[in-house]
């Protein structure tokens, strides 16, 4: 089981305004808002915590097939580039990589090194990006595998016999896939 999430920092800058009134309060706990306020780069911290929450949500919904929007309750604690996220009685382990272009987080049930393969897109179309990401993943895995979706849009790879949990993410000009 694996969940990943990528944030394109220039897209985050363009498409979101984390400083708008009530934005932080809606998404982040008191402890997380403290991380943001005391960070030397609050913008990067906002999107790091966000990617941790999203990656954890993807992992959680693989275990508990469902769909909902409750980022605030996925509560992050961080140490260096690692961290944990708790949601109710669920807990997972995160590793995050931050570059000047993007932030990627990966969530697992046990601590693990980040394994996501990053893809930089040359197209801005959402549909084309999905297709590129999918073909890169299938090229890597072998053509006998197909990308399938479970209920609630949860993706997995299958060759008809073996199934593999995967996680796909894209934002702005960047995407990534991870195989559990």
């Amino acid at each position: 089981m694996i969940g990943n999430d990528i944030v394109d920092l220039s897209e985050a800058q363009r498409a979101s305004n984390w400083q708008r009134p009530r934005f932080l309060k809606k998404l982040f706990s008191e402890a997380e808002q403290h991380y943001i306020k005391t960070s030397h780069n609050p913008f990067v911290m906002v999107w790091r915590l966000w990617s941790m929450k999203e990656a954890s949500y993807k992992l959680y919904t693989q275990l508990n097939p469902s769909r909902f929007y409750n980022p605030k309750e996925f509560q992050c604690s961080i140490k260096g580039n690692k961290g944990t996220v708790r949601f109710k009685d669920f807990k997972c382990y995160l590793e995050t990589k931050t570059t000047s272009n993007y932030i990627i987080s990966e969530a697992r049930l046990e601590p693990n090194k980040l394994t996501s393969t990053i893809v930089k897109f040359s197209t801005t179309s959402h549909k084309e990006q999905s297709a590129v990401l999918k073909s890169k993943l299938l090229n890597r895995f072998g053509i006998e595998y197909h990308l399938k979706k479970r209920e609630f849009n949860i993706p997995f790879l299958s060759n008809g016999k073996d199934n593999f949990n995967i996680s796909l993410t894209h934002h702005g000009n960047y995407g990534a896939y991870a195989i559990a």
């Binding site: 944030v7 979101s16 934005f23 809606k26 998404l27 929007y69 849009n153 934002h171």
Partner: peptide, 16 residues
Amino acid sequence: VKDLKINSANLVDIIL
């Protein structure tokens, strides 16, 4: 998200 492909980071903007 599924139909309009709205980024989940922007759902909070819609709510606000």
